[in-house]
Simulated assay, not measured.
Amino acid sequence: MKLLAISDLHLANPVNREALAGLPHAPEDWLILAGDMAERLEHMRALFALTAERFARVIWVPGNHELWTVSENGADSGNGSDSLAGEAKYQALVDLAREFGVVTPEDEYPIWTGPGGPCVVAPLFLLYDYSFRPDDLPRDQVIAWAREGGAVCADEMLLNPAPYPSREAWCAARCDEAEARLMALDGAPTVLVNHYPLRRDLVHIPRIPRFIPWCGTRRTEDWHVRFNAKVAVSGHLHVRRTDWIDGTRFEEVSLGYPRQWDQKRGILPYIREILPGPPTMA
């Protein structure tokens, strides 16, 4: 019995969809889906159906790609009448997940009682607020600074924060809600799951270093301590790695685009073991 995790499946790509279809059954294990699964609801439905059938429990948090406003008929413009934006898109995803019994950030946090437990598995939807930018860079210069480095995120065109006035406001609201729920756990050990890394010093993207403003919020940098995290799970960076900070293990669990993983190995070796995992810091 294991608690497993993967993120950034990017199922718009047929290579990744084919690899997912070959995922074996693991009826005793739990699987965390840590965001950036797909942009379109039809791909999300197929994902939830497949994983819910093959794992004992599935837990999902959204990444930025799930939240993009895109046409469900396959066009990329996001201008079709079937397009959903912002909170409406997120709620549609939550409703879809619940059809298959998939746990979302809106549901009661499940308790892992298997090896490495007991602990609360807390799926979080926190977004980002551009505060991971350099200390001396004003907010109103972030886009220009990133563009100079060829790193402007497509969210600037496709991630509509409606009804919030900005992505920062949506992030603040999500952090407020999650913080209150985590405080109510009263120190219980946790596994914190968020698409974005909780700390700025966990962002290692040497190919596109100026992408960092779209990678999280400084507000969460001490949450692993405040909320007694055994493990913090994230994706987004497409740089698989394990870090230890303050006795907490941080796992980046991305698969990524086909060029970023060895297709001959299949998808299974890229699913990371969260619990029981290694017992102590390496």
Rank of each mutant, 00 (worst) to 15 (best):
Y90P: 00
Y109D: 13
A85G: 10
D76C: 11
V94P: 03
V103K: 05
S71M: 11
T104D: 02
A88C: 06
S81T: 15
E72S: 13
P105N: 04
A97P: 00
E99R: 15
A92C: 07
L96A: 00
L93D: 01
A85F: 07
G86C: 10
G74H: 02
D76T: 10
S83Y: 10
S77F: 05
W68P: 00
V70K: 14
S81H: 15
R98Y: 01
F100P: 00
A92H: 08
R98S: 04
S81L: 15
V102Q: 05
G86E: 09
G86I: 08
A97Y: 00
A97K: 00
T104L: 02
V70S: 07
T69I: 04
A92S: 11
A88H: 10
E108Q: 09
K89W: 01
D107M: 09
E106D: 12
L67A: 06
A97C: 01
E72H: 14
G80H: 14
E72F: 12
G86N: 09
N73K: 14
E99K: 12
V102N: 05
G80I: 06
N73Y: 14
W68S: 00
V70T: 09
V70A: 09
G74D: 06
S81A: 15
D95I: 05
G74Q: 06
P105K: 07
E72R: 13
A88K: 13
A75D: 11
L96W: 01
A97G: 02
